[in-house]
């Protein structure tokens, strides 16, 4: 309970930092229009007055944070509707993409790690190492571009981005067809990493007494590692999962642009360019909240996975 209560001051501090950082560069939302030959300086100044952007920064912060406390995130300067609606329209799409990428990373990572650890073949271990290096070293904007080029432009196996076929009612298979490529690209970064965690963890416990005992009772290496070794690997894996969330969100931003995925990352990118402060701050706060909550959940899951860990 104490840990949950500790979230509030942490989020308040984060809001202050985010507000400061977002307002650090020169210019603002009205100035985006000022480069247009049709815009007049007087009209731009009036926009700043109407939006309260001519007020001192601390006044602007106080106004924003006090409204935030009653659920009002402000109005988007670009879309002219509540920033909360703008962000919430996109949030489920990002959750779908990052969730699928996590699943890809976990299933493939754990599976390959297990395979590399259990296998006695040097070729399999070598192949696993190559996969690991490739996955970690290839940036998603590049792998995404290659996937689109090969599988969409040439082979026509996957669509050219987007979340669904335009003009068709949304259905599960169509959604899956559109989701597969971006999820694989985003998840591939983690496949390598988690495979190496699992492999290294299993290799460590493979020579432990309890695994040797299990093997002497007649279990195969795979059975012994799965039943007795794997739970020991879970703890560091959960830690890594919690720590990886910010990287997953920033990776989603790139993947969403490459695959025209209408998620929060792409929204954030566009809103930053347009200096749409209410949307930028809303999206960043949601991301910050997600990180804080996942870290809290990670701590709580420790207690379940390892009975020695207890929180007051």
């Amino acid at each position: 309970m104490r840990r949950v209560a500790g979230l509030l001051p942490r989020l308040l501090l984060i809001s202050l930092l985010l507000f400061g950082v977002v307002h650090l560069p020169r210019g603002g939302p009205a100035d985006v229009y000022a480069a247009d030959p049709a815009a007049t300086p007087a009209a731009i100044e009036r926009m700043k007055e109407l939006w309260g952007l001519d007020q001192p920064l601390h006044v602007q912060y106080w106004r924003w944070v006090s409204r935030l406390s009653v659920g009002d995130w402000g109005t988007s300067y670009v879309e002219r509707r509540p920033a909360m609606h703008v962000v919430m329209d996109r949030l489920p799409n990002t959750l779908r993409l990052t969730g699928a990428a996590l699943l890809v990373g976990l299933v493939a990572g754990v599976g390959l790690g297990l395979l590399a650890s259990v296998s006695r073949s040097a070729a399999v271990k070598h192949l696993a190492r190559v996969v690991a290096v490739l996955g970690m070293s290839v940036p998603t904007f590049w792998s995404g571009a290659i996937v689109l080029l090969v599988f969409s432009s040439y082979l026509r196996w996957i669509p050219a981005g987007g979340m669904g076929t335009i003009g068709r009612p949304a259905d599960f298979l169509d959604g899956l067809w559109h989701l597969a490529a971006p999820a694989l690209v985003l998840g591939s970064v983690y496949v390598a990493q988690w495979m190496r965690y699992v492999q290294a963890g299993l290799d460590d416990v493979a020579s432990e007494d309890f695994v040797r005992t299990a093997r002497s009772k007649g279990l195969t290496r795979l059975q012994a590692l799965l039943k007795h070794g794997f739970p020991n690997v879970m703890l560091p894996l959960v830690t890594v999962l919690g720590l990886e969330l910010p990287r997953l969100l920033s990776g989603a931003m790139v993947t969403e642009v490459v695959f025209s995925w209408p998620g929060i990352g792409r929204l954030l990118h566009g809103s930053l360019v347009a200096r749409d402060y209410p949307v930028v701050l809303g999206a960043l706060l949601v991301a910050a909240l997600a990180v804080v909550v996942v870290n809290l959940l990670t701590d709580l899951v420790y207690g379940v996975l390892d009975p020695r860990v207890r929180y007051a």
Binding site: G144, L148, S152, S153, A160, G161, V258, P262
Partner: peptide, 20 residues
């Protein structure tokens, strides 16, 4: 008329090559 939002040049190319 459908206005399709495609920000990335790779996806734009793919859409064009597929005749969409």
């Amino acid at each position: 008329v459908v206005i399709r939002i495609v920000p990335g040049s790779e996806a734009q190319r793919a859409v064009l090559e597929r005749g969409e």
